[in-house]
Computed example of a mutant assay.
Amino acid sequence: MAKMVMFSAVSGKVLQDGKPVAGAVVEREFRWSWKSETGTDATQTDAQGVFKLPLIERSSFMGSVLPHEPNVRQTILIKHGGKTYKAWMFDKPNYKPEGEIGRPIVMTCRLEKEPTHHGDVFGICELN
């Protein structure tokens, strides 16, 4: 059974007008096209606006032996003050650890920003 990374570990900080946002809910979701599987988890920002989400990994014997094109749709939403913000939207084309951007995912999310593309990633968060 091959281990396949659906979503690498993510850490970041949520700010609004330059100030840390405490208690914001950070929700993460993946949709794995190979097995039609969806997974979610969530955390809250601390007093400094910091959050951390662990690596999400799955296994598949067939996925490790049959040729296919990996596709994992990734989404991170931030919920705060009755609003939902699109933080991260990305289609991961591989199963590698840190395969999203080739390094750890560390981001700063500014709630006052409009979502935009940062390379292949769409959302309000900028990669550090």
Rank of each mutant, 00 (worst) to 15 (best):
residue 3 K to T: 07
residue 3 K to R: 09
residue 3 K to V: 07
residue 3 K to C: 08
residue 5 V to A: 07
residue 5 V to N: 10
residue 6 M to R: 10
residue 7 F to L: 12
residue 8 S to F: 10
residue 8 S to Q: 15
residue 10 V to R: 03
residue 10 V to G: 03
residue 10 V to C: 02
residue 11 S to Y: 04
residue 12 G to Y: 01
residue 12 G to E: 04
residue 12 G to L: 00
residue 13 K to A: 02
residue 14 V to K: 00
residue 15 L to K: 04
residue 16 Q to I: 00
residue 16 Q to Y: 12
residue 16 Q to K: 07
residue 16 Q to H: 11
residue 18 G to Q: 13
residue 18 G to F: 07
residue 19 K to D: 05
residue 19 K to Y: 04
residue 21 V to H: 06
residue 21 V to R: 05
residue 23 G to I: 08
residue 23 G to E: 14
residue 25 V to L: 02
residue 26 V to I: 11
residue 26 V to H: 02
residue 29 E to G: 01
residue 29 E to V: 00
residue 32 W to V: 01
residue 32 W to P: 07
residue 32 W to C: 00
residue 33 S to C: 00
residue 36 S to D: 11
residue 37 E to D: 10
residue 38 T to S: 08
residue 38 T to H: 05
residue 38 T to G: 09
residue 39 G to V: 11
residue 39 G to K: 12
residue 40 T to G: 11
residue 40 T to Y: 06
residue 40 T to W: 04
residue 41 D to P: 01
residue 41 D to A: 03
residue 42 A to E: 13
residue 42 A to C: 07
residue 43 T to Q: 04
residue 43 T to N: 06
residue 44 Q to M: 03
residue 44 Q to Y: 06
residue 45 T to F: 01
residue 46 D to E: 08
residue 47 A to N: 13
residue 48 Q to D: 14
residue 48 Q to T: 13
residue 49 G to K: 00
residue 49 G to Q: 02
residue 49 G to Y: 00
residue 49 G to M: 00
residue 50 V to E: 15
residue 50 V to P: 08
residue 51 F to G: 04
residue 51 F to Y: 12
residue 52 K to L: 02
residue 52 K to Q: 15
residue 53 L to T: 10
residue 53 L to P: 15
residue 54 P to Q: 03
residue 54 P to F: 06
residue 55 L to E: 13
residue 56 I to W: 09
residue 56 I to K: 08
residue 56 I to C: 01
residue 56 I to E: 09
residue 57 E to M: 11
residue 57 E to F: 01
residue 57 E to S: 13
residue 58 R to Y: 04
residue 59 S to H: 07
residue 60 S to F: 00
residue 60 S to V: 02
residue 61 F to W: 14
residue 61 F to E: 12
residue 62 M to L: 15
residue 62 M to P: 11
residue 62 M to R: 13
residue 62 M to H: 14
residue 63 G to W: 05
residue 64 S to Q: 02
residue 65 V to I: 13
residue 66 L to I: 10
residue 66 L to A: 12
residue 67 P to I: 01
residue 67 P to K: 05
residue 67 P to M: 02
residue 68 H to Y: 12
residue 68 H to I: 01
residue 70 P to W: 04
residue 70 P to Q: 12
residue 70 P to K: 09
residue 70 P to Y: 07
residue 71 N to P: 10
residue 72 V to I: 15
residue 72 V to P: 10
residue 74 Q to Y: 08
residue 74 Q to F: 02
residue 74 Q to D: 08
residue 74 Q to A: 01
residue 75 T to M: 05
residue 75 T to W: 09
residue 76 I to Y: 12
residue 76 I to N: 04
residue 77 L to H: 13
residue 77 L to N: 10
residue 78 I to Y: 11
residue 79 K to D: 02
residue 80 H to T: 04
residue 80 H to M: 06
residue 81 G to E: 15
residue 83 K to I: 02
residue 84 T to M: 00
residue 84 T to Q: 07
residue 84 T to F: 04
residue 84 T to H: 07
residue 85 Y to P: 13
residue 86 K to T: 15
residue 87 A to E: 10
residue 87 A to D: 06
residue 88 W to S: 01
residue 88 W to V: 08
